[in-house]
């Protein structure tokens, strides 16, 4: 089962929910850090790195002797990765999306492809948790390519928790697509509510069933709860605004380890996810 932890707004606690949910498993579980522009889940674990793989795309290399400057490749490229002025085009690999279309349309077979590194995927093992973490190189824009590389390393026989990037743009969609369930983490503020609406629209569009976790309950107001009730969206968990959680987080500690009383919260979250997925609409609340 694949559960993506997403949110419209950044900083609502996706990574906190993801790492703590993974930690309460008493069986092997995979945690995928799909926030490849700023991966940070690994900061909470002390496991060992078991692999480090380079991720590359195929970018064009033009044979100037075969090229007759017809510009068909330049016109085909929608990403402005090729530039021409009546001679062999210049290639800008950092703008290329690796689609290979330029080589296909070249009438003279003047384009071959070579690897261009865009990032890496690291895998760590910490007790029961296998953490697969994607990291996009600085100066490269292909976040979704790294997200796909991370997800391609997922084992189907173990549950997986995906820490999604914030927002609802391509990298977040690449993470959510194909997930069995999405947990949308928000906070009870006007920004949290507004961006939750965007995340809800995205999950509905992708036909991924979802529920909401409200973090830092006690700040703001009740409009997120009211919205969820109105829309028929289950609130899977409410996490109180507790300064001790922020203090533990700032030290790189996992909440369920630093503050054991919160272990029950994340166990409840998992029960509510499986209950909702199983068609059970009765969601448990923390007593």
């Amino acid at each position: 089962m694949i559960v993506a932890i997403a949110s419209g707004k950044g900083g609502t606690g996706k990574t906190s929910v993801a790492v703590n949910l993974a930690r309460v498993f008493d069986t092997p579980v995979q945690l995928l850090d799909c926030d490849v522009e700023e991966p940070n889940a690994h900061l909470f674990f002390s496991g060992t790195m078991i692999s480090e793989e380079e991720i590359a795309i195929s970018v064009p290399e033009i044979n100037a002797d075969a090229c007759n400057a017809c510009d068909e490749c330049v016109e085909f490229c929608q990403f402005n990765a090729l530039a021409s002025f009546c001679r062999t085009p210049l290639v800008f690999p950092e703008l290329c999306h690796g689609c290979g279309g330029c080589a296909q349309v070249c009438p003279r077979g003047a384009i071959c492809e070579k690897d261009f590194r865009v990032g890496e995927v690291r895998t760590f093992q910490d007790e029961r948790i296998t953490l697969i973490s994607g990291c996009l190189d600085v100066g490269v824009s292909l976040a979704s390519t790294i997200v796909h590389a991370v997800k391609n390393r997922l084992r189907n026989d173990l549950p997986a928790i995906l820490d999604a990037p914030p927002g609802t743009a391509c990298p977040a969609v690449a993470t959510l697509r194909g997930a069995d369930y999405a947990v949308l983490v928000t906070e009870p503020t006007p920004f949290g509510l507004h961006d939750l609406g965007l995340a809800v629209d995205t999950a509905r569009e992708l036909r991924v069933p979802f529920g909401v976790v409200i973090n830092r309950v006690g700040i703001g107001d009740d409009r997120v709860q009211d919205y969820c009730a109105r829309e028929g969206i289950p609130v899977l968990l409410e996490i109180p605004d507790d300064r001790r959680i922020a203090e533990a987080y700032s030290r790189g500690q996992i909440i369920v380890e630093a503050l054991p009383e919160y272990r029950a919260y994340f166990e409840l979250l998992w029960r509510n996810i499986t209950a909702h997925l199983g068609g059970n609409t009765a969601i448990e609340a923390m007593s």
């Binding site: 330049v74 990403f79 402005n80 990765a81 530039a83 021409s84 002025f85 800008f92 703008l95 824009s141």
Partner: peptide
Amino acid sequence: NAAQGAGIQAAQTIVK
């Protein structure tokens, strides 16, 4: 409003 590569396109335009 190009998503990327505006400078490259502009350069081609003035070269042409």
